[in-house]
Design a protein around this nucleic acid. Structure first.
Lengths: 216, 216, 216, 216
DNA sequence: AATGAATGAGTATTCATTCAT
DNA sequence: AATGAATGAATACTCATTCAT
């Protein structure tokens, strides 16, 4: 029973790439849903619709797979940040835009927060090994520094603001609300994810950051 | 063979209580260190220096144990919050004090953040069942509302600030920095937990919140 | 705090007896429902509404408890058999009566069959130890022998019938139907326990035994 | 390093099949010896000489394994019943043959009785789920109906005999004696399994059934 | 007579991982 | 590139039993 003897190399490579991406996406979902400790290799294989053995073939073990997922997650957010073009905007608008972007990204990618939580639970050892650690650093820091400097020069922003601190603050205001939304909702006895609640949160965060930055 | 006749019921009772507290503390540490999925009942028993079976005797299963730990964690922070006496201070000082307290509490109790992360990973179902959910609500919200109102009346604070939003923001500024300190340190290539870095963060957070609240 | 110093001895004894009976009944139900291997000492204590430790106080361990339950079960059926007074009836009626009694007893005491199954699974070692083994022998055997002899002399029964074989046969006809009623119902696709099915079974069994015994 | 190129798919498949059969046989023995509640998965693996994990790989859990064992047991007896060819014999001989077969089968397969006891203890829920419940029904019922009808037409058997009732009676006469042989032996103080006792039982059962069926 | 606390040895089941092809 | 079979080491949980009073 003669068959096409061997598929074109390029095709095989493409299959291999597709398998890896499929696994990565499945793993991301599983890790996001269950954490590193709660994730199951079986379920990842099932989600991916691929044989479990293949995961080991491509990613060696669970730890390395998590590391790959984490790096991919950083690569994804960095790719989107790169589209922001904050320097094309006036300083206040640029900051507003950054706040909105951060909020929207976390909203659209709740798995990113869960992955970070898992990574930090394990003291970020999955990044330490990564030679790309630095490459995962946000280019936004430099951009934000420029925005802050321009704002200061324009006389609209206060001076002496550390862009890293500000970046962390902007992230933290969204992150805490969204990552802990379930406990907060339970404790305050109200749903924090209704459209109204969400829009109020975004306003508040913008008020806080701009209230702090803008010279009166 | 006469013996001490009355078996000191109180002492017996205290043994049971002590065992439960010991288990609870051991479980808190294990859950904090490894998350709900990564925690091991064996290790909890070992940490507690008690027989594993006893954990099930008192707490039924891992889920219920986690719920008990979580409730205890909330009770602990609420107990400390109750010592703050913010109403004895002028509004700006009261807010400053709250920021410091939040920062210090998370610093001293990193397990609280990890527990919250685990709870949220599981959509806070451990609180939903808890009839004490509401009782875990922070009394600080009401106090903070009073502080904000007084500040506004005194002409030092802006008006229209939602105390819940502000409480969440204050918490978020500390939480994100401390909970994600490992990934942030890896990515920024600098240790965020040196004394200097910590003191800078506290200053920044205070600047942000008061910069937002204070009328110029 | 003075109290009634010590209850009358007789009363305490009666309490002790009552506790033992309660335990025995609870254990019988549990063993009947779950078998020896599936029975749980905890559940027996719960059923009895008594402390688990008390079971060990009175019955030493699970095995001995099962033995006690088994002996009691035999004592119970023997006590009822003793009320039959088969010798007051004419031979054919006596046999009919015995068949009915056996059927009704198994129907009313399904636990007796389950207990026997458990005992036999363990090769009746719970009876081997029992010095009362012989005392558990049915007095019905002698009675049945007399009935058969009288029937033969009267010319209504065939001769040469071993009363033990007949006794076992009468029991077996009821036992198999009732003990295996669930598998039989499943396989035949019909409920063997409806009133109609039960009455048909009783007729059939009587027909079989008397068809065999009666001279034509 | 060239090796046998074609991996002989058939062989691989047979390995899986063989493992499953081995497990099934080991489980049958263990369940027969200890009942469902007393059976140990560890012991089954040991008996099978296979890794315990493999049992779960093929049979999911203990319950499903028991179900598989039970279905196999029915399939086995049905296969042997199919060899009887009762319709080739004259009615009385056919009935005699069925009695002997039943007796011999239970003697040779005591585990079948124990499995049925376990199944009934659990109210045959292992069959209820089985879509093959009906397929486990004995084809002997129809054959027996034909035998009875022919006997009646020939004037040797009485009429109005329900083949299901008769089938159950024939089984019950053997089953009770063999399944409860340990308690009966203990109580009657005599060994029911000596060759003489066994041959007497077989004679008696045949006498009972034919005494009932044959017209005088 | 009665009981709450405590435990060692299991017990079914799961998991990440590897074998063999 | 891909996969079904197989496994050792856990893992949550259970059980009969004993301790201490």
């Amino acid at each position: 029973m003669p068959r096409d003897p061997s598929p074109a190399t390029e095709e095989r490579v493409r299959d291999a790439d597709r398998s890896q991406s499929t696994i990565l996406a499945a793993a991301r979902d599983e890790f996001a849903e269950s954490g590193l400790g709660g994730a199951r290799m079986d379920r990842i294989a099932e989600r991916a619709g691929l044989n479990k053995r293949l995961i080991y073939y491509y990613f060696e073990d669970k730890e390395k797979l998590f590391q790959a997922v984490l790096e991919q997650a950083y690569r994804d957010i960095r790719a989107e940040e790169a589209q922001l073009h904050l320097l094309d905007l006036d300083p206040a608008t640029a900051v507003r835009r950054l706040i909105e972007f951060t909020w929207d990204y976390y909203l659209a990618h709740p798995e990113f927060m869960t992955l970070l939580n898992s990574a930090n639970l394990h003291r970020a050892r999955h990044l330490q090994g990564s030679q790309r650690a630095r490459e995962l650093n946000s280019p936004l820091i430099d951009t934000l520094a420029a925005v802050l400097e321009r704002g200061r020069r324009d006389g609209v922003f206060r001076g002496g603001v550390d862009p890293v601190q500000l970046y962390v603050s902007i992230a933290g205001l969204s992150y805490f609300y969204l990552s802990n939304t379930h406990t907060l909702s339970a404790i305050f006895g109200r749903d924090l994810m209704t459209p109204k609640a969400r829009s109020e949160r975004l306003s508040h965060m913008t008020d806080v950051i701009l209230g702090y930055l803008l010279r009166s």
